[in-house]
């Protein structure tokens, strides 16, 4: 019996199925079970996706930061690979945050984008910092030097997260973004339940992506390492023929 190479396992399959179920429940809660908002009407339904994706984007980048510290402190290969995987997933979630936020902004604020809004611009900067991080990881050269530089970039980029998160409080009257809803408990009943489902579904999706991407990145590293050993063997063979 042949087995196909896969990064899947029983755990990832359980996570994947749970994520699909949670996403289906989220759709039901967002579009059928919950009521339109008294002020925003149906536009509020984007809240159940936008806010969980935004918070989980921070989680992914913080995992990347933890992995980076592990690498800088202990030269942990596990930490380095985890940081790379989490940064990639974080970039996807960050892009989703900006897209869903823009779609929400048009019917509520009256614009897809506002350059004067600190949260919007600092979130875009966070996205670009981590796109730069991913590009840096592709620059050829010594692996340790590249991983060390990338880890430093990740930790510098993390400084942006508290600025993004607290900007709506620091510039409360001067920014279009509303103040914190979840911390202040300004959402209740079925809307709160739909938000909970959003966190559950997006959290499971994030976990599924993260585990798979980590395993792919680990395999890439293994291939690179063994590829180097193979190249050295070939060179030795070339030298022996001379």
């Amino acid at each position: 019996m042949s087995t196909r190479p896969s990064t899947g396992s029983t755990v990832t399959r359980v996570i994947g199925i749970a994520a699909l179920i949670a996403l289906a429940l989220l759709l039901c809660a967002a579009f059928w079970w919950s009521e339109p908002d008294a002020q925003q009407g149906d536009a509020v339904r984007l809240f159940y996706l936008h806010v969980p994706v935004a918070i989980l984007e921070y989680v992914a980048f913080i995992i990347a930061g933890v992995g980076s510290v592990m690498y800088l402190w202990k030269r942990s290969v596990f930490g380095d690979v985890m940081a790379h995987a989490a940064a990639e997933v974080g970039v996807v979630f960050c892009a989703l945050t900006l897209i869903t936020g823009s779609l929400w902004g048009r019917p509520t604020w009256g614009t897809y984008w506002d350059w004067g809004d600190v949260r919007l611009v600092t979130t875009l900067i966070l996205l670009l910092l981590f796109v730069g991080y991913l590009a840096l990881r592709q620059v050829p050269g010594d692996r340790h030097t590249r991983s060390k530089q990338a880890a430093i970039v990740a930790l510098v980029a993390l400084i942006d997260i508290p600025i993004i998160n607290r900007s709506v409080e620091w510039w409360a009257n001067r920014t279009l973004h509303q103040r914190s809803t979840l911390i202040e408990g300004k959402i209740e009943d079925i809307n709160a339940f739909a938000t909970f489902l959003g966190f559950l579904a997006c959290g499971l999706v994030l976990s599924w992506f993260l585990v798979h991407r980590f395993r792919v990145a680990w395999l890439e590293r293994e291939v690179a390492t063994h590829g180097l050993e193979r190249a050295l063997s070939e060179r030795r063979a070339e030298g022996a023929e001379v």
Binding site: D37, V44, W109, G110, Q178, T181, K186, I187, E188
Partner: peptide, 14 residues
């Protein structure tokens, strides 16, 4: 003109 909505979320039929 941009409209700033608040952070309160209430059902339409509250």
């Amino acid at each position: 003109l941009r409209v700033k909505h608040d952070e309160d979320y209430r059902d339409d039929n509250q």
